[in-house]
Every structure is written in C-alpha cells, then in structure tokens.
Design a protein around this nucleic acid. Structure first.
Ligand SMILES: [Mn+2]
Ligand SMILES: [Mn+2]
Ligand SMILES: [Zn+2]
Ligand SMILES: [Zn+2]
Lengths: 145, 145
DNA sequence: CCTATAATTGAAAAAGATTTTCAGTTTCAT
DNA sequence: ATGAAACTGAAAATCTTTTTCAATTATAGG
C-alpha cells in the first residue's frame, strides 16, 4: 500500500475539508485524489472501483459519505446528464459552466457567458425574480469527432 | 367514476399517443390529464397520488409505464433540480427553456436565448463540437417573493 | 355488433441504489 | 500519551424502479 504524494489540488481539498472540521482518513484521501484529478464525471460505484485499487478496504458507504462531505463543502458538484444524474465532478470555480463530451464523458469548464439581458427580459415577462442559472453544453471532444 | 372532458391539450396528447400505436386506457387518460395541465414538475409518486383520486385502481407501475411512453413520444421531459431529477413536465415546444420557482415549483417556459456567439467561442477554445445546450433559470415567482 | 390479437393492467416479486445501524477503529486537540 | 468525537466497513433496512405473470381491455377487421 504505497503512499503517493497528493497533487496540489487534492491537497487543497484536504485542507479545506480539515478546516471544515472533517478528519482526514486514508479512504477520504484516496477518494479526493480520484475526484480532484478526474477529467470526467464519476458515479459512486465508479469511484468505489478506483478507490479500491489504491486502498482495497474502501467501502461503498464511505464513498457515499465522502461525496456528501465534498458536496456540502462545495468542492464537488453533481452532474446532470441525459442518462442519469448521479455522477460527480470538481465544482465550478466562480462563474464557470461545463461542456461535456457525449461520447467519452470528457469535461471542459468555460466562463464568459453573459445572460443578463436575457434574464432581465424573462424577469419582465414572467414576473419572477431570477436567482440562479444553469447552463450546460454537450458535444463531441476533439478526440471523439 | 366521473368521466371529465379532456382539456384540448390532453386530447392532443392522447391523439399523438394513439398515432404512435399506443392504446388509450383509462389510467393513461388520467395521467395525461394530470401532466398536460400541471404548472409544476411532478414525480412518479406525485402523479400516482393524483391519479388515484380520479381512478383509484391506478397502479404505480402504470405511472412509470405511462411516463416511458410520454417521454418516448416527446410529450414530457424529465426536469433536473437540485433536490433530484425524477420529476416530469410538459416538453418544450421548439426552442424553449424553463424557469422554475424554487419555492412553489411553478414553471414558466421562455424562448429567445441566443447563445451562438458563446458557443462559437467555446468551440474554438475547447476543440469540441457543441451539439446541444441546456439552460435553466431558477428564482421566485410573483407569488413567492 | 362479434372476434381475434396484441397491448395494457395491477399485484407481487426481483433488482438496484442509497441510507441507517452498530461495534470497532482512528484522528486529532489537549 | 489520552480521550472525546469522528470515521470506518459490514450488514440490515429502506426506497425506488423494473420485471414477471395471469387477467383484462382496446381496437382492427369481419
Ligand atoms: Mn453563467
Ligand atoms: Mn436555447
Ligand atoms: Zn470525447
Ligand atoms: Zn413560487
């Protein structure tokens, strides 16, 4: 059971988790390492399988519990997809959205959308106050087209 | 067991379903009536409870099966929400998106978004070909604010 | 209107996913 | 080093969705 050095990102996540009052255990380290460095969304069983390669004792329950902590801390987000919404991904940094490859699942983050005019127009027409917007692009990555 | 007249929209849905080769049964009529006229997204159990008021024999399985048919026929869509993605709503007509009230669940459809510049920019930066976009607004309806 | 056929139904069982319980172990502030 | 609180994995419980199956029903054709 080798003890790999954490990547800078996963170390930052662990620090945030610790600052949030959570304890840093081996299975949590492994799960964080997996999620912080993934370029595609992963489901619980997905993460479970990967985690067991590094730390075979890992239980599926622990994966669920880690996802709960990571989501509560704002480090990961649930990803909505046509075939299900039970996969997780690094949360957006500031005002970012995601673009997903429909074939291989690869994820790219982008920023720079400006929906303020549209939002103002829709608020006027509907009488709603808009608090939040979800935007997601789907397509084929350079490799898959 | 009163036999209410179907609303124009639910009659149109039933015609579409029949044209698609499905048979029009009482529980299906009731479920269509509920979904075609709902102003908020409804989950299977939600629909089940409402359907049983009109046709008490309705089984939950039949609700699942009806949703399958309605989704396959393009009459309803699954709605993605922060607290789960198992509720259904009238599908968009053409290029529409939805705006949801985070308090009461009320839904409004809107059109008129133009994301082509953003899409072109993100395609250039990422090397992806973007095929589809999801956009959803969340806020408070006139009643809830 | 009758009939035959295929679709549909509801109950029950099965399968799948997630959560809870619990006793033992580990982290981490003192 | 110590102890309180958090965390762990296994097993059980719970919840959701799908499958199976025998009976019923819709609808096309005569
Ligand atoms: Mn945005
Ligand atoms: Mn659009
Ligand atoms: Zn790809
Ligand atoms: Zn409202």
């Amino acid at each position: 059971m080798s003890n790999h050095t954490p990547t800078p990102l996963s170390q930052a996540w662990l620090d945030t988790l610790q600052a949030g009052g959570y304890r840093i255990t081996r299975p949590l380290q492994v799960i964080v390492e997996i999620l912080a460095n993934s370029t595609r969304a992963l489901g619980p069983v997905n993460i479970y399988d990967l985690a067991r390669k590094e730390y075979p004792k890992t239980g599926l329950v622990t994966v669920y519990r880690a996802l709960e902590k990571l989501e509560a801390t704002g480090l990961v987000q649930r990803v909505h997809q046509a075939d299900g919404c039970h996969a997780y991904l690094r949360a957006a940094n500031g005002h970012e959205h995601i673009l997903l490859c429909s074939l291989c699942g690869q994820v790219v983050y982008f920023a720079g959308d400006d929906l303020s005019d549209l939002i103002a127009r829709v608020e006027g027409q509907s009488g709603f106050t808009i608090q939040e917007h979800w935007l997601q692009f789907h397509g084929l990555c350079a490799n898959c087209q």
